[in-house]
Design a protein around this nucleic acid. Structure first.
Length: 235
DNA sequence: AAAGAGACCAACCGCGAGTGG
DNA sequence: GCCACTCGCGGTTGGTCTCTT
């Protein structure tokens, strides 16, 4: 059957959100509440698809989000929860106050998986790497070069995919040749507007509730993890 | 100074689950 | 039970930045 993507409509904005769009969305949700994402853009006067609005709200505009760096405690909690739940980012985010699944997913992919790999721990299984580990190619990574791809080897996308493949192999094998240690550099690198920086600092200083105060229900999580394992994609 | 490599993250895409008619 | 639809999730991509050579 195949359903057309919700963003397929011609004339809808895509890509980065403008401050104006953010404001419009925030005001609308503050007035009308979340939900009815499909109708929201139309009602709010936004040239976006509902999906995009939902994502923007959940990942960026919600007032209960922390905007600062992920603390060491949060990091440990993520590792712990990932060990129990696997890549169920929304479930993990549900146990992390003020963090979104997207944020945790990004943090995992860019920091934690490497960190574990550097420690000789398989980030997927959370067990030490075995000696005869064989590198599996990425699920849908580019196959061997054909002429059309070859002709575009200079393209940005191609270069990037090559880089990513290389990057992944270093993660998987734990043989990263990075010159600098993995750091909190991201915070410096991230483009932040002044308001963002300010709110980041504020949330770091005041509203950052230690994750140790949270009390994840381990039994519940474990049973959930078992249940989820049954339908694990890895089969 | 320029080019290449690597890091980060916002946003997109496709799919499955859930739900109501 | 089937179909059409919405919502939410996880994987992936692309833009932009810094660092290294």
């Amino acid at each position: 059957m195949g359903r057309a993507p919700c963003c397929a409509k011609v004339g809808l904005n895509r890509g980065r959100w403008t401050a104006q769009e953010d404001e419009t969305l925030t005001k609308y949700i503050q007035t009308h509440g979340e939900g009815s994402w499909r109708d929201l853009p139309k009602n709010a006067g936004l040239l976006r698809c509902g999906k995009s609005c939902r994502l923007r709200w959940i990942n960026y505009l919600r007032s209960d989000l922390k905007r600062g760096n992920i603390s060491e405690e949060e990091e440990q909690l993520i590792i712990k929860l990932h060990g129990l739940l696997g890549n169920r980012w929304s479930l993990i985010a549900g146990r992390m106050q003020g963090r979104t699944d997207n944020e945790i997913k990004n943090f995992w992919n860019t920091h934690l998986s490497r960190k574990l790999a550097d420690r000789g721990i398989n980030p997927v299984t959370h067990k030490p790497f075995c000696c005869n580990f064989s590198l599996q190619p990425k699920k849908d990574s580019k196959p061997e070069l054909n002429s059309s791809i070859e002709s575009s080897t200079s393209s940005r996308a191609y270069k990037k995919s090559q880089r990513n493949m290389k990057k992944q192999s270093t993660v998987m094998t734990g043989t990263c040749k990075r010159k600098k240690p993995w750091t909190e550099k991201g915070a410096l690198m991230k483009k932040m507007d002044p308001m963002e920086k300010l709110s980041s600092r504020i949330s770091d200083q005041s509203s950052c509730k230690p994750s140790s105060e949270m009390n994840p229900d381990e039994d519940k999580l474990k049973s959930q993890a078992q249940k989820l394992q049954c339908c694990s994609r890895e089969g």
